[in-house]
Each structure stands twice: as structure tokens, then as C-alpha cells.
């Protein structure tokens, strides 16, 4: 659909390989109280702790905490710039998606850690259940006493959240999970369906939607040259005349082309489903759903018949019922 401007992604990609943090220092040396708090929280009774720190605590030693790092963050200007660019593009929300750590030697109480990080990659724009955004991967090297003790690769999604309607409760929003769910089987099954998007009705297309309300699919006809046009436009593409009337479509058509939507999932739509470009008997084409036929049985040239689908209390839509050969 909407292509990402090449220059925009190039601008983001230019940050790959640049420093994300340098000369960071652990807020506290590795210490028994923090190890004990961690073990208590995790329910971890391993007797090796707190003689050594749980390896999975690696990132915790780099965190600024509530007070932040004294003397400011170790985060680089380049990383701040990248995040600001994404913020400006509307990708204001952030969620951690992946964490890969390697442990070269155990950390012990008294170890003082330092860290440096690099921006490893910035993904092209991706649409997830949370919203559309970019995955940013950083790789951090963690040292103690000048010796590399571990590496920490971290991936976040910076995204523009799917907007919530004010009349809906948060728990009715299956598409606002704080983590991206990339696998379709993870989608909650029980939650109420979101409503389909509302059409934008304006003075140029109001007549079309009045027709739909009366169960008619109205095609514009130029009264200057007689050319039919669809979708509705203020003037004729052939002769330029702004004068028009309408003809009601007979309802017969054929599948001119189609796609099957698998991913990404959108609210109110249940993939996989077919989206057809229907050529009406009158000659104009319309994009709509194909009903009555499994998505994998839709074929080009398949005859279809207009019907009206009541999506909800407020919305009716013209769709096309296919006939399996």
C-alpha cells in the first residue's frame, strides 16, 4: 500500500554502525544486596548466588535506575537523534521485543562494570498488532576490570500506537497489547471484535453512500460524454465535465484481480481473507470483499454478485458473493 519513502529509510539506516553508548559505568558495583533482591523477586534459590550474580542480571548492572547515571546518560547523541527522528515520525511508543545475552564469565560482588554499545540495525517500517514502526537493535559489550564479561543484544520496537476510540474500554482492545504479537495463534480468541473503519463521507461521495443505504451500487455517469466512472470523483477524467448523474449497477461482475491478506492483522478483520478487484458488468471496477467462497478458492474471472453486508449497527457495505465453479 503506502510505500515508505526511500530517503526516509536511508536516513534511518545511516545510524547503523554508529555508537549507541560509550564509556557507560555501572551505577553500583556488583553487590550482594541487589543480587538477593533479584533472587527474591525471581524466586531463585540457586545456592551459587550471591557468591556470583545470576548471569541474567547482566543488563540490570547497566541500568540507570530511578536516579539515572550520575553525570548523565552514557547514551550517544547518535542514538538520541535516531530516537528523536522516530518520535517525530509518530513512533512515540517503545517496547522491548528481543534480548540475547552471552556470558563469558560470572560477575562477582565487587566487580565494577563498564559498557559500550553500538546501533546494529534499524529495520524497514513494519506493521505489528501494536502499530507501525521500526525495530532498532543495539549490541552492548559489558566489561569488568577491562575484561569483556558479556554481550547484550537488545531489540526494541519504536512504533506509532494504534489509536484507541474513547468509547472503548482498554480491555476491549485486543490490538493494543504492549508487546507485538507476531504469530497469529497468539491472538486472543475471546475478545469482542473491533469495528470496521468508518468511510470518510464528503460532498463528492455522499451520493454513493446514500445509494448503499438504499441497497443500490451507484456509478457516476458524465452527462457531458457519457463515460461511467468509479470511485466517485467531482469531474470526468475523459472530458473534464463536472456534470454527472448516476446509474445503478446491475450487481453482476467478475473477479478482475484479488489478493489474500494473511498479515498484518488489522482490527475487525480476520485473516486470511480475499480482497477482490471486481469488474462490474457496466465496465467499472471496485475493490471489496468476496464472500461465500473460501479465500483460497477465489479465482480471476470468477462470476460474483453484489450483496450488502451489515458490518454493524451503523455500517453497511457493498460486497460480492462468489460462486464456486
Amino acid at each position: 500500500m503506502s510505500a515508505e519513502p526511500e530517503e526516509w529509510y536511508e536516513k534511518l539506516r545511516a545510524y547503523e554502525g554508529r555508537v549507541a553508548a560509550s564509556g557507560g559505568q555501572g551505577r553500583d558495583p556488583v553487590n550482594e544486596p541487589m543480587i538477593r533482591h533479584w533472587c527474591e523477586a525471581m524466586g531463585d534459590t540457586n545456592p551459587a548466588y550471591p557468591g556470583i550474580a545470576p548471569p541474567t542480571m547482566l543488563q540490570a548492572w547497566t541500568m540507570g535506575g530511578l536516579g539515572g547515571h550520575p553525570g548523565g546518560s552514557a547514551r550517544s547523541e547518535a542514538y538520541d537523534e535516531l530516537l528523536a527522528l522516530l518520535d517525530e515520525a509518530g513512533c512515540t511508543s517503545v517496547v522491548a521485543t528481543d534480548c540475547e545475552q552471552e556470558y563469558l564469565r560470572p560477575l562477582r560482588p565487587g566487580d565494577r562494570i563498564t559498557f559500550d554499545a553500538v546501533i546494529e540495525s534499524v529495520s524497514p517500517r513494519k506493521t505489528t498488532k501494536l502499530g507501525t514502526g521500526h525495530f532498532v537493535t543495539t549490541r552492548m559489550d559489558i566489561q569488568a576490570g577491562g575484561e569483556l564479561v558479556g554481550t547484550h543484544r537488545f531489540r526494541i520496537l519504536k512504533y506509532a500506537p494504534v489509536r484507541r476510540k474513547p468509547d472503548q474500554q482498554p480491555d476491549q482492545q485486543p490490538d493494543q497489547k504492549p508487546n507485538p504479537e507476531r504469530e497469529p495463534e497468539q491472538r486472543p480468541q475471546q475478545e469482542p471484535k473491533a469495528r470496521r473503519p468508518r468511510p470518510v463521507i464528503n460532498r463528492d461521495n455522499a451520493g454513493f453512500w446514500e445509494g448503499v443505504a438504499a441497497h443500490q451500487l451507484l456509478i457516476q455517469r458524465c452527462t457531458g460524454c457519457g463515460t461511467l466512472r468509479f470511485p466517485w470523483l467531482p469531474g470526468c477524467g475523459g472530458c473534464g465535465s463536472p456534470e454527472w448523474d448516476t446509474v445503478a449497477a446491475s450487481g453482476a461482475g467478475t473477479v478482475f484481480s484479488y489478493v489474500v491478506m494473511h498479515h498484518p492483522p488489522f482490527p475487525a478483520f480476520d485473516p486470511p481473507y480475499a480482497v477482490g478487484l471486481i469488474e462490474l458488468a457496466e465496465g467499472v471496477r471496485i475493490v471489496s470483499n468476496i464472500t461465500g467462497v473460501p479465500h483460497d478458492k477465489v479465482r480471476i474471472g470468477m462470476p460474483v454478485e453484489l450483496e450488502f453486508l451489515r458490518a454493524d449497527d451503523e455500517l453497511e457495505l457493498p460486497v460480492f458473493r462468489g460462486a464456486v465453479a
Binding site: D98, E100, P180
Partner: peptide, 8 residues
């Protein structure tokens, strides 16, 4: 090594 990916 611990490598994890989050979902739900």
C-alpha cells in the same frame, strides 16, 4: 547464552 523473544 540466553536469547529470548517476547510475544503475548
Amino acid at each position: 547464552k540466553v536469547a529470548i523473544r517476547l510475544g503475548a
